[in-house]
């Protein structure tokens, strides 16, 4: 995988060098341009623009952490920090409703680890709780980071997040939408929060795992 570390800006021409046009790139009169600020990365023959900032845009099968903001007769409305709210229907949960109120199952403000089930043409986001590992999150702490930095927090094959977990013993649940749920002793959670902020600030630099390792060793 070839990574060009140069930051491109909106309207900047991109030389695809035989690659196919991927995300974050538009074309006009046979030329290709970036439409966001980000870094160009090539993957599987596609040139993609990895944005440096921006909101969370849901993608099917993403794992996200949502908060109940409203309750309808047969579904919950969840805040997933995107441009649109997400909907969670009772049929997409492991629970059965026998006519009782939905707030007996999930109430306003409850935090849930979900997956994006379907995105309709009109950008309605339907969520689901029916998959391994998906559940209501009880207790713990929430830290929010920029959604574009989540992939750096995970690291290659989960190397970064696993290292933080092993080093501090804190339970970490990462949502693709930039919501991180932490559970463990408070002093350890503060360390993890500091590390997450550091990764967020330094996401565009290389050799991040080693730098984070150093911080974790110092604070131990």
């Amino acid at each position: 995988m070839d990574i060009q570390k140069k930051i491109v800006l909106p309207g900047e021409e991109i030389n695809l060098e035989g690659m196919k046009q991927g995300n974050g790139i538009y074309h006009e009169n046979g030329k290709y341009y970036a439409y966001q600020m980000g870094i160009i990365q090539t993957y599987n023959g596609y040139a993609n623009l990895i944005p440096l900032s921006g909101k969370y845009y849901p993608v099917k099968n993403d794992r996200v952490i949502g908060k109940v903001i409203d309750i309808a007769p047969s579904f919950w409305i969840m805040d997933i920090r995107g441009p649109y709210p997400g909907f969670l229907h009772i049929n997409d949960t492991p629970w059965k409703s026998y006519g009782e109120d939905l707030n007996k199952i999930l109430n306003m403000g409850d935090t849930v680890f979900l997956k994006v089930n379907e995105i309709t043409e009109s950008r309605q986001t339907w969520l689901s709780l029916k998959d391994a590992g998906l559940r209501k999150l009880e207790g713990g702490h929430i830290v929010t980071v920029q959604p574009t930095k989540v992939s750096r927090i995970i690291g290659k094959g989960g190397s970064m997040v696993n290292m933080i977990k092993e080093s501090t013993g804190v339970k970490i649940q990462l949502g693709q939408n930039g919501v991180v749920w932490l559970d463990g002793p408070v002093d350890k959670i503060l360390i993890v929060r500091k590390v997450l902020r550091y990764i967020e600030d330094e996401a565009h630099t290389s050799g991040l795992t080693d730098k984070v390792k150093k911080i974790l060793e110092e604070t131990r």
Partner: peptide
């Protein structure tokens, strides 16, 4: 651009 909004 700082907000990451797609622009020509």
């Amino acid at each position: 651009a700082d907000a990451g909004i797609p622009m020509r």
